[in-house]
Nucleic acid binder design. Structure first.
Lengths: 114, 114
DNA sequence: GACCACTATTCAGTGTTACTATCTACTGGT
DNA sequence: ACCAGTAGATAGTAACACTGAATAGTGGTC
């Protein structure tokens, strides 16, 4: 993956996964597959699993072990109340950043900062 | 600063500074002050200086030492051709991310991912 | 029954980045 | 002599994504 993307994913990948879990419960393998479909072609599986461990340890998700028909048991993650609060804060931080960057993106093609 | 903001700045702060330099040449102290005005209240000065050293070492900017009337000489940074290319790539990466996140932000308040 | 593909998770080690805290250095005012 | 404001550098830390590999279960095939 590009160095820029790798660095930019720091912090945002967490929000992405939490946002996915806000839609519905999911397990690691599933999340990884979905991310690949969405164009995050080479996000390593290991990265997603490590992230899931982190958000579990922070108490943002509830976990349930569910047997799979084809393979080892799945760890299904569900966003809880704390996770929802944390996700809200993520969106606020994200909005702040996008506002600044949109501003910069437009100024860049004009006269610069004053 | 919030943990989320700290992590999200990784990768994006570099783009922000390059975007500022795309508008006009600037030196570290000035950039820090401008960031503070823009609401990046507690970005440490050391962070900006370290970032400037990095982008200089990568050859994205040209540097000129300019004497100051009140203080030690300033290191004025100017975006060069390579820097402009790198900034273009930054914007492409940024756009990709914002598209995915906007999609997630809207789905979140609807039926979830399918 | 040995091998392989697919599903599913874990983990040790690495590189990059922003933060904290501190230090140096120059100018002007009190 | 001291201090505030200006200007930059640096050593050590924490957090995160990546690489590469290992483990484990199921089903199919030769």
């Amino acid at each position: 993956m590009g160095r820029q993307m790798t660095e930019m994913l720091k912090g945002t990948l967490e929000g992405i996964v939490l946002a996915i879990l806000a839609g519905r419960s999911a397990y690691g393998y599933e999340i990884t597959a979905w991310l690949r479909e969405q164009g995050f072609a080479d996000i390593a599986e290991g990265t997603v699993y490590a992230l899931l461990v982190r958000i579990e340890q922070r108490g943002l998700v509830d976990v349930e072990k569910v047997p799979s028909e084809k393979g080892p048991p799945r760890k299904v993650y569900t966003l809880n109340g704390e996770g929802r609060d944390y996700l809200d804060e993520f969106w606020r931080t994200w909005s702040f950043l996008t506002e600044r960057l949109e501003q910069l993106q437009h100024q860049e093609h004009q006269e610069g900062i004053q």
